[in-house]
Amino acid sequence: MTTRLCALTLVSALMAATALAAPVMAQSAPAPHMMQAEPSISLSAYGEVKVAPDMATITFGVVTEAPTAAEAMAQNAARMTQVIAALRRAGISERDIQTSGLNLSAQYDYVQNEPPRLRGYQASNRVTVVINDVNAVGTTADAVVAAGVNQIDGITFGLKNPKAAEDQARRAAVTALQSKASLYADALGVRLGGIRSLNEGGPNMVQPPVFAGNRMAMAADMESTPVAPGELTVRIDITGVYDIVR
Rank of each mutant, 00 (worst) to 15 (best):
I236W: 00
D221T: 13
Q75I: 14
M25K: 09
D153T: 11
P116H: 03
Q168T: 13
G138M: 03
L102P: 00
M25P: 01
D142H: 05
K163R: 14
A181Y: 01
E231Y: 05
D133P: 04
S40W: 01
T233F: 01
D133T: 11
A52G: 11
P30F: 09
I41Q: 07
E71G: 06
A212G: 12
A173Q: 05
R246H: 08
A185F: 05
R196H: 10
S179E: 13
A56P: 07
T99W: 02
A72H: 02
T59A: 12
S197L: 12
Q151Y: 12
L20H: 09
G230F: 06
R4F: 15
Q107I: 10
M80W: 02
A70F: 08
G148P: 11
R170P: 02
A212S: 14
P116W: 04
Q98L: 09
M205D: 00
A90L: 05
I58L: 13
Q207L: 06
D243C: 04
A45H: 10
V62T: 14
S42G: 07
S224E: 15
P209M: 10
Q168E: 13
R89L: 12
Y121E: 07
Q82H: 05
A56V: 09
Q75S: 08
M80P: 00
N125H: 14
L232E: 04
A72W: 03
E65I: 02
A228K: 13
N103K: 10
Q178E: 08
S28A: 15
L20V: 12
E114N: 10
G158C: 08
C6P: 00
G101K: 03
N135Q: 14
K163W: 07
N204P: 01
A106Y: 03
Q107C: 00
I152P: 03
P226F: 09
V134Y: 00
T225A: 01
A220W: 06
M35L: 11
R95Y: 02
T233N: 01
D142R: 10
T99N: 08
T81E: 15
V63A: 05
D96Q: 11
I195A: 09
V49S: 01
A228Q: 15
A45D: 06
Q75D: 11
M55C: 07
S224A: 13
L188T: 09
G154W: 00
H33N: 13
A16E: 01
V234A: 02
S224I: 15
T59S: 14
I97W: 03
A187F: 05
Q207I: 02
E200R: 08
L20N: 02
T175Q: 07
I195K: 08
A16D: 02
